[in-house]
Simulated scan of single mutants.
Amino acid sequence: MARRPGVFVRPVTPEEGRRLQQIARTSKQPVRMRRAIVVMASAQGQPVPLIGKLMQVTEGYVRQVIHDFNEHGFAALDPKWSGGRPSKTDKKTRERTDADL
């Protein structure tokens, strides 16, 4: 069975490298910091399995971060927070006061 081709980040300019280092060192968001480290490791030629092992994340996560960075650039490093769980109460119930009871 043939080996799958390696996934690597696109060539990173020196300015982008400095920006990635800055994010990895000073980011207050752990997700953004982890993604920047993954991209930096890939830019240095580290293979996906090694990055996954070093960062203690799955290989699929590493591949996804690399593909996203190649497509969207630095915007891919930002966390994609979602709205969370839907509300269990409707607007009418929330607006009801104790006097209505």
Rank of each mutant, 00 (worst) to 15 (best):
R96T: 12
D98A: 07
G73W: 10
V48T: 13
V31F: 08
T26W: 13
E59R: 07
A24H: 09
A76M: 02
P79C: 03
G6M: 10
K88Q: 09
D90F: 08
A24G: 12
K53C: 01
R10M: 04
Y61K: 00
P11Q: 09
R35D: 03
I51E: 05
Y61I: 00
K53M: 04
Q64P: 05
D78W: 08
R3H: 05
Q56D: 02
M33F: 09
K53N: 06
K80C: 10
K88E: 15
Q64V: 04
G83T: 08
P86I: 00
F8L: 10
R85T: 04
E15S: 12
G60M: 07
R96H: 12
G83V: 06
P47Q: 12
A43D: 00
V38D: 11
K92G: 08
I51Q: 02
V65R: 00
I37K: 06
D98M: 04
D90W: 12
L50A: 15
R34P: 05
M33C: 12
A2C: 11
T13D: 07
K28P: 13
L77Y: 00
M33G: 14
K88F: 12
Q44R: 10
Q56Y: 04
K91R: 13
Q44N: 09
G84N: 01
D90K: 06
I23T: 06
G84C: 00
G60N: 05
M55F: 14
V65K: 00
G17A: 15
Q29T: 12
S42K: 12
F69D: 07
V31N: 11
P14D: 13
R94M: 05
I51K: 04
E95A: 09
I23P: 09
D68P: 05
S42Q: 11
R10C: 02
G84S: 02
A99V: 12
V57L: 06
A43P: 00
Q46A: 15
P14G: 14
V48Q: 07
Q29A: 05
